[in-house]
Design a protein around this nucleic acid. Structure first.
Lengths: 209, 209
DNA sequence: CGGGCGGTTGATTTGTGTCAAGGAGGGTGG
DNA sequence: CCACCCTCCTTGACACAAATCAACCGCCCG
C-alpha cells in the first residue's frame, strides 16, 4: 500500500451528503478512504435506492466498478471525509510497483467475492434479528481494529433506514428487532448510537438463534 | 484469452460427480471450462451445503479463491467436462502477456462483484418466483450466447434441489413456483428441462410481479 | 409555528419455511 | 425380470417472520 503514496492525490474535505463519485461519472480512479464514512448505493429505476455497503478509513472504493466505463454506484459521504484518489490508468502501466499492487488488488477481490458469497449464503438462513446483530458486531470489530471506537458503543454515521436497506429489511423490522434485543438486554438503543451490552450473548445469537 | 494457450494444460474428461478441485486442496490454478457444466459449493458445518454458482464453457473458476491458501469451494462436475488448467503462479510472473491478463482478470472481478451485489440487491425485493424466472432467463441467455441451446427449452444439468439451494429457497418452494408459472402459461416444466414459453411475460414478471 | 423526515408502534396479510406423506424414476441385487 | 431401495421431486396442512398499511411521535429546520 505504501507504493501508492507516490501516485495518489489526497482530496477533501467532503461534507455529509457530498458524492465522491456518481454513476454517471466516467470510471477512472479508485479512492482510499483516509477519514470519514462513505456509503455506496445504486438508485433503482423505481425510485428506490439500494445500499450496497459502508466504507471506513483504510477501505478502498471503486474496485467494484472495474471493467465498466462508468462507476457502478454512487459514493455518498456519511461523515466528513478525506480520500486518496488513485488513477486507474496507473494499473495499466507496467512499472514494478504496479505489478505488485495488481496482485494485491486481485487478492482483495478474492476476499470481497468470498465475503459477498458468504452474505448470500448466510443471510437466507438467518432472521432479520441475526443479520442486524451480525452487522453491528462486524461494525464494532471494524471500528475497533481501526481504533475509531474504544468501547462497544457505536456511533452510527448511517441512518437506521440505510441499515435496513443494506440488510434487506424494512425500517419497521429494524425498529422492532432493536426493541426486542434491548428488552433482552443484549444491546442498548440510542438515538444515533447502539451499544452492544452483552457481546457474549450477541455472538451466540448470531450463530444460531 | 489467446495468450493463455501457451501456459495451460487441458484436462479431462471429468465425469458427473467428479471434483475439479476441493476445499482442502492448495489453491494453485484457475480453470477455464472448455465443455461441460460445473457447480461450486461449500459444505457448511451443519452438514448442509451452499451452492454458490453454476459455470459453463468459457467461464473461469478459481478466481473466487485468490488471496487464500486453499480453494474456497468444491468444484463439482454436473455434466461431463473438459477444463484448461492455468497455474496461478503464472500471474506472479511479469511477462507482458501476464500483465495484460491481469487487467482482464481484474475487469472480470469487477463484473463478478457487481453481479454479486446485484443478486444481494434484487433478491431481497423479489419473490422466489421472480428469482426463479430470473435464473432461468439468465441461464437461457448464457446458453444462447454460447450456442449451446438454440431454443428456449433448457436442459438442466443441475437438480432442482441445487437450483433451490442456489436461489436460497427450499425445494418445495421451487416446485410450487414452477407449478404456478406453468399454470400461468409462462413456462413448461419437464423432467430435466424447462421451457420458457412466453419470454415477454417472463421478462415483465422479473421486473415487477 | 408548520412541515417534513426518520423512527416507532400496532393490526393485518402474505410468502416461504417446516413437517409429513407420497410418487416417479433409476439403480442394484436377487 | 421383478422387488427393493434411494434420491429427487411433488403436494398438502400449518406456522412464523417479515412486509404492508396506517397512524403517530419527536425532532430539526426554515
Amino acid at each position: 500500500m505504501h507504493a501508492l503514496n507516490s501516485v495518489t492525490l489526497s482530496k477533501g474535505p467532503y461534507k455529509i451528503g457530498d458524492f465522491i463519485y456518481k454513476m454517471e461519472n466516467q470510471f477512472k480512479s479508485l479512492f482510499i478512504i483516509q477519514s470519514g464514512v462513505i456509503k455506496l448505493e445504486k438508485p433503482l429505476r423505481d425510485g428506490n435506492v439500494y445500499v450496497t455497503g459502508f466504507y471506513f478509513p483504510g477501505d478502498i472504493i471503486g474496485l467494484e466498478s472495474a471493467g465498466g466505463a462508468k462507476y457502478s454506484y454512487d459514493a455518498v459521504v456519511l461523515d466528513q471525509a478525506w480520500v486518496c484518489e488513485m488513477p486507474y490508468h496507473y494499473f495499466e502501466s507496467q512499472e514494478p510497483s504496479s505489478v505488485l499492487l495488481k496482485e494485491h488488488i486481485i487478492s482483495l477481490y478474492g476476499q470481497k467475492l468470498r465475503e459477498a458469497d458468504r452474505l448470500l449464503a448466510h443471510d437466507r438462513y438467518q432472521t432479520g434479528e441475526q443479520r442486524l446483530l451480525q452487522f453491528l458486531e462486524m461494525l464494532c470489530k471494524k471500528l475497533f481494529t481501526q481504533n475509531l471506537e474504544k468501547t462497544h458503543k457505536l456511533q452510527l454515521p448511517m441512518s437506521k433506514g440505510d441499515i435496513a436497506n443494506y440488510l434487506g429489511l424494512r425500517p419497521e423490522s429494524i425498529s422492532r428487532a432493536l426493541q426486542k434485543l434491548q428488552r433482552q438486554g443484549v444491546i442498548r438503543n440510542y438515538k444515533n448510537a447502539i451499544e452492544i451490552v452483552d457481546m457474549k450473548v450477541a455472538k451466540k445469537m448470531i450463530c444460531r438463534l
